[in-house]
Computed example of a mutant assay.
Amino acid sequence: MEEFVVYILYSKKFGKNYTGFTSNLIERFKSHNLLAKKGYTIKFRPWEIIYVEFFNSKNDAMKREKFLKTGMGREFIKKLIQQQLQQDSYPPTRTRVQLPSSLLKGKTFRQKHLRFFFHYL
């Protein structure tokens, strides 16, 4: 079964964030930081992952990404960034990744994916 991930990137250097979804989180992260030659994310490198959610269906991941790009979703992201910066926990450590239990119902959480990302933070 294919797994989909909604992620939020943050560029501390520029104070920008980016929300996206993918089925290959590792390659997508590399693309944002190293491989891409054009697009929004190349302008604000380096990016760091501040939040991830895992989904079993592409449709659910797309819905969550769409929500995070609404006014309410942007407020959630803004608060997430502010909390991490205020607590001097930036960049976040493995224990700071927030995956609320209400969001994990019916979703598969892959710890091995997070280990990869924290290697790059």
Rank of each mutant, 00 (worst) to 15 (best):
Q86H: 13
R110K: 15
I42R: 06
T108P: 00
T93E: 07
I81E: 01
F54C: 13
L104Y: 08
D88Q: 09
Y10C: 06
L99R: 13
K16T: 04
R74P: 00
T93H: 08
Y40C: 06
P92F: 01
K58Q: 15
H113D: 15
R115F: 04
I81Y: 01
N56A: 01
Q98M: 07
W47R: 13
K107F: 02
I50D: 00
F67W: 15
H32L: 05
V97F: 15
H32G: 02
G15F: 08
V52Y: 03
G73Y: 13
R115G: 04
K38W: 05
V52M: 08
Y51P: 09
I26Q: 02
K37Y: 03
H32E: 02
E3D: 08
R45D: 09
K38M: 04
F118K: 03
I50V: 13
M72K: 15
K78C: 07
I77G: 10
Y10I: 01
I49R: 01
K79A: 11
Y18K: 13
P100H: 04
Y7C: 07
T95P: 06
T108G: 06
T70M: 09
L34W: 15
E48D: 12
F116N: 04
R96S: 10
Y51A: 12
G106T: 03
Y90V: 03
K66P: 04
E27Q: 11
L99K: 15
E75A: 10
R45E: 09
H32S: 00
Q98I: 11
L104I: 06
V6Q: 03
P91M: 09
Q111C: 05
I8Y: 01
H32W: 06
R28K: 03
L103T: 01
I26Y: 00
Q82A: 15
F76D: 05
R115S: 08
V5L: 10
K66Y: 02
N59V: 12
F44H: 12
Q111K: 12
P91S: 02
L114P: 01
Y40T: 12
A61Q: 10
E3C: 05
Y120W: 08
L25K: 05
M1D: 07
V52E: 04
L80Q: 15
F4E: 00
K105R: 14
T95E: 14
Q98T: 07
F55W: 10
I49W: 04
G73L: 11
S102N: 15
R96E: 13
H119Q: 14
L121I: 12
E2K: 13
S89N: 14
I77Q: 10
I49Q: 02
Y10K: 04
Q83D: 14
L121G: 03
L85W: 00
Q111D: 11
P91Y: 10
